[in-house]
Nucleic acid binder design. Structure first.
Lengths: 119, 119
DNA sequence: TTTACATATGATTAAATGTTCATATGTATA
DNA sequence: TATACATATGAACATTTAATCATATGTAAA
């Protein structure tokens, strides 16, 4: 084995070690699946509109439908998805149900995305 | 108009003003559409796996396919989407093309999402 | 300039997903 | 308790989208 081959071999070994490290640092598929599911929820313009509308204040279903010019049914369906993903919480007041963002993470993620979009 | 009606009227007016404010603070549909499109890109487990693998180091197409047990074609298709959304950049070195995350925003968004998932 | 290697791309197919429509459930009021 | 109001939900349909297969493009080495 001459010098040149030696250098090549070492460089390859180094690369393999790197790939091994990447392999190790990669989170479990399950976690990455959940992460993708989370972003998927943000990845629909109707849902983003709804989330954004709730950025500062709680809103009831009819408020949202009226504000965003969406059908009551559509809003309700989407809110169910947002509830399931723990992005919004809600409380009943008489006949109405008021929805609001569940925690600061939701606001942070939206803000972070907005920064990237506004570039 | 008696006192009670007056109070009701005022409370309604207040609510209308609130809804008006929400209406005004809502970004243009176009921006919210772009924002949703951005999150949609993060919202696929294959793409998230690819992005995560590149978290620390640049990788070529074959590296990614090998690491994540994906077809070359599938990886290439997804990388095209990531390129189009400006989430990854790339450089050619000989026959290989090395991809890496485009900026810190990408890392931030993934990290932020990860925090929410790991709760 | 062939040949092999690395990546990209177009077409097709199957699965996932959002909206609509109709209807059900739940709550307050006459 | 009958009626109206607010929200939720199931089924059907149309659209979007990711994976695959076949093939094209681009680059380096023999």
């Amino acid at each position: 084995m001459d010098m040149v081959e030696n250098v090549l071999k070492d460089s390859q070994t180094e690369r393999n070690e790197l790939l091994h490290k990447v392999q190790e640092q990669q989170p479990d598929d399950e976690i990455l699946y959940d992460l993708a599911e989370l972003f998927k929820v943000f990845g629909d313009s109707t849902r983003i509109k709804i989330l954004y509308a709730m950025f500062e204040h709680e809103l009831c279903v009819n408020d949202i439908a009226g504000l965003l010019n969406l059908s009551q049914s559509s809003v309700s369906h989407q809110l169910r998805i947002l509830k399931t993903s723990k992005l919004v919480k809600f409380r009943r007041e008489g006949k109405s149900i008021y929805y609001s963002l569940d925690d600061e993470h939701v606001r942070s993620i939206i803000s972070m995305g907005m920064e990237h979009v506004e570039e």
